[in-house]
Nucleic acid binder design. Structure first.
Lengths: 201, 201
DNA sequence: TAAGATACTGAACGAAAGTTCAGTAAACGG
DNA sequence: CCGTTTACTGAACTTTCGTTCAGTATCTTA
């Protein structure tokens, strides 16, 4: 790879990085191309040289994020023994990797906008992937006898809800990583052990 | 109140109602004034006759929603004996009243947009109110001995996260009320009793 | 080193959306 | 019953934003 290609890739990365932060912070619609140029120093035209459109740029980010996150999980997964440890590891990775599912809010916003779009498809796939991931996590705890038996599919929904919500809260109150880690850890503890002293239906 | 004032108020309500649905469904930016005119039959000018601006309309809706929800909670509150029942009642009211905190997503979206706005203030107040509400709920359970002792402030954050996340999930998968109720009920059960068979740190 | 490819600029365009306003019709009040 | 206020219309404006494109500079390669 020669000098030109290298620099080109660097600017593409720089644009993507800046765009990601802006989309996470402000949402899809509220982030303008000009915001991105301001954050990168690049020109409008240059963004359209590297990406087909605003939508294309967003699509690229969705792909990148999902891929990266899952890779990192694979690397860490073997460290955890019990299902409870896995759960905590899961939460920790969510926080460390960019304060959680950072694009989902922007993605949801997009989702609401148009009926016809690649993004709709991609989002459905992503959500399905997350739910399956959560379900596997929970099911493995049940199989090992560590968790109570139950409907792992529905519990996956609850877990996904908790993760999405905590993500939003952490981002909004722009808390630091340590605070966020503490909150997530507490959330997982509650998820495992509950609030109540004695079992209650 | 004469005929004219009555009809005026009705149209203002009609506009507010339509706008609320659209904001919830599509987000703040994505719903245009023209969308609202299409949904109401009113003209653009008429919306600006009843509301100062798009932002003002949104502000009005935030106020209205928070006020209404809390009133309904006050009406129901006395029905619940234990803290666990309160918790379930809380979840149920969230689902029934318009599939949860319906404007928060749009509000967050707005929040990201401008630094300088009434909405920022209003949102902070709202979030603080919710956290206090949650904390009271949890603290009362601790005081009565029904819940384990713990940091009710931090647990309030976890509860808020769960509620926000579930709200988003329910809205996205446009599930019906019964499904949503089931998911919320399960979530509260997990919150109370946990997933794990035996206590685990 | 010269020709061509690549990376990038920024002004201009068109569509979309928020806002305004002169005008109209209906209701109110004296 | 007539002047005035109120509720409302819709075309016009202003701004914003995504997108395009002709032009420029830099690097590659032969």
């Amino acid at each position: 790879m020669n000098k030109k290609q290298l620099q080109s890739e660097q600017t593409r990365k720089r644009i993507a990085e800046a765009a990601r932060h802006l989309f996470v912070q402000k949402g899809y619609k509220a982030t303008s191309i000009e915001d991105i140029t301001a954050a990168t120093g690049s020109s409008k035209g240059n963004i359209y040289y590297h990406f087909k459109s605003k939508e294309g740029l967003f699509l690229y980010l969705l792909d990148e994020w999902d891929r990266d996150w899952f890779d990192k999980w694979r690397d860490k997964q073997h460290l955890y023994g019990s299902a409870a440890e896995k759960m905590h590891g899961f939460a920790e990775l969510l926080v460390i990797e960019d304060l959680n599912h950072p694009l989902t809010q922007a993605a949801d916003e997009f989702f609401g906008g148009e009926i016809e779009s690649d993004i709709m498809e991609k989002l459905s796939v992503m959500t399905a992937d997350h739910l399956r991931f959560n379900q596997d996590l929970i099911q493995s705890g049940m199989d090992s006898g560590e968790f109570k038996a139950g409907d792992s599919a529905k519990l996956a929904l609850v877990l996904e809800g908790l993760v999405i919500g905590l993500s939003r809260l952490s981002r909004r109150s722009n808390s630091n990583i340590d605070e966020a880690l503490g909150t997530y850890r507490l959330a997982v503890d509650v998820l495992l052990n509950g609030l109540a002293k004695a079992p209650h239906t």
